[in-house]
Simulated assay, not measured.
Amino acid sequence: MNKPLKTPPPYPIASVDHALRAATILQLEGGATVAQLAERLGVARSTAHRILAMLVYRDFAVQGEDRVYRAGPVLELAAHSQSLVSRLRAAALPHLHRVVGLLDETANLIVRTGDTVRFIASVECLQALRVGSREGMVFPAHRTTAGLLLLAELTDGELEEVYGPGRQRDRPADGPDLAQLRTELGRMRRNGFAVNKERSERGLVAVGVPVRGRDGTALAGLSVSMPSVRYDPQRLRSLVATLEAAAHAVEKELADQP
């Protein structure tokens, strides 16, 4: 028997439908101007503009200097297998809690998509002065600990694909100096860990290590974040050792899954 066609809901909400259709157009077709989207949706330009403004606000879209709207970080995350993201999160959460119990600092799990990263899990510590949960938030990859670790896995050619000339059209002011970034990534590649001192947020220090798949590819970054006033460089090796133990435990759980 053929599967029945989708039945529209009895009380459709036009504004929601327009927003979902707009997001789909940006994701599948690469981009659109306000006028193009208004024509596609059959709405006024002012309505299309309001829809796009909300998509930008929620990171579903970005607007380039050419005034074209394109898929934002949330939609780019679809490049990751959702099953992989959910499996990563499920495998990591118990170990994030264990890290927080040992270090009494906030722990995070992060994945990269292009030049951005998304925090897919975050467990806060109980200290009064602490780094809050970043779960669901999106940051430029080169400004976060885990993002740098994941970028360090790329070849020069792959890094050029992410940050080369013309690649940062949507966020030109935030693009890194590529030569300097290569030097930093080389150091992190040798060390096997990364330290972020107020690079993403003032007053915050983070230390991170990669979480690898069966083939050795870095799938995510596992990090611990703390107020900079509490960071002691003398504890760095201990922090890294605790994170590496947690990362290896997550890797083992992933490897044991069918």
Score class of each variant (00 low, 15 high):
G101W: 03
E253L: 05
Q257I: 04
V162Y: 02
E244T: 09
G164T: 08
Q180W: 04
V34I: 15
L154M: 13
R230V: 01
Y11V: 15
E253H: 06
L102H: 01
L75Q: 10
G164E: 02
D170A: 05
S86C: 04
A247M: 06
L103T: 04
I51R: 13
H248P: 00
Q27K: 15
R87H: 10
G192C: 11
A121M: 00
V68R: 14
T116N: 07
A194V: 15
E39P: 02
L154Y: 09
L103K: 01
A128D: 11
A92Y: 01
M226L: 15
A220P: 03
T47V: 13
M137V: 02
R143P: 01
T183F: 09
S86Y: 08
V117Y: 01
Q63H: 09
E201A: 12
Q234N: 04
R67F: 11
L254R: 03
G157F: 01
L26Q: 07
E201N: 08
Y57L: 13
H49S: 11
V229P: 00
L77I: 10
S238V: 01
T113E: 15
D156T: 09
R171D: 14
R70M: 07
A255Y: 01
P10V: 10
T145F: 04
P227W: 04
S15F: 08
R199N: 07
P10W: 13
T155G: 12
A246G: 09
A90E: 06
A32H: 04
G166C: 05
S223W: 09
G42K: 12
N108H: 15
Q36I: 03
A23E: 14
M226H: 05
A141L: 05
R212W: 05
V99C: 07
G175V: 03
G147M: 12
E158W: 09
S133W: 02
V74C: 02
P8N: 14
V138S: 05
P176L: 09
S46M: 02
G31L: 07
V68I: 14
S15M: 10
R212K: 11
G72E: 12
L77H: 11
V68S: 13
L77A: 07
A48F: 03
V99W: 02
Q180C: 03
V16L: 15
